[in-house]
Write a protein that binds this DNA or RNA. Structure first.
Length: 154
DNA sequence: GCCAACGTTGGC
DNA sequence: GCCAACGTTGGC
């Protein structure tokens, strides 16, 4: 089982949207490095839901990968902003996954905290200038994030 | 709104 | 294949 971090602007799609919807397709990723990570995901993997362009930015919840290797349908829709004229259904360029809601953090973990706790080597997110919207999170780092989230009194 | 840090595009 | 111009991301 692997851990991931996936970004979304809450004004576009937030953890509470996912909570209401229960499950959604993570469409619209058009960056090859991010897509390559999406291709590596396995059913049952866990992903931190990161709010970008928000105040504060940070990890707001947790979700689970529920379906993998899906051709992103928006690449075939000419009216979509994610339309890719060079992609065909026979050989789709962009794959993605379905995610299902696990939990919304009562106390979100802000970017400031993440920068405090982790080095750029441990967590790609805190690397200066990083714009990747899908990235792996090492097991050890994921456990520490969950430990911050679950107080030690438990 | 500003701007740094990227990724992509396209001329050559 | 190089690289300048351009577009986008995302923190602040």
């Amino acid at each position: 089982m692997n851990y991931w971090l996936m970004k979304s602007e809450p004004e576009v799609y937030s953890i509470s949207d996912l909570e209401k919807q229960t499950e959604t397709i993570w469409d619209g990723v058009r960056n090859y490095q991010a897509r390559n990570f999406l291709r590596q995901m396995k059913i049952g993997d866990l992903a931190f839901f990161y709010h970008s362009n928000s105040n504060p930015p940070g990890i707001f919840g947790l979700m689970r990968i529920s379906k993998t290797d899906i051709a992103d349908p928006t690449q075939f829709e000419p009216t979509s902003k994610y339309y890719d004229s060079k992609s065909t259904p026979e050989s789709p360029r962009w794959q993605t996954v379905n995610v299902e809601f696990v939990e919304s953090f009562i106390q979100p973990i802000s970017l400031a905290i993440l920068k405090e706790k982790f080095t750029p080597e441990e967590l790609l997110l805190v690397r200066n200038g990083n714009r990747l919207s899908v990235m792996p999170v090492p097991e050890e780092v994921a456990q520490k994030i969950l430990a911050i989230k679950y107080p030690t009194s438990a």
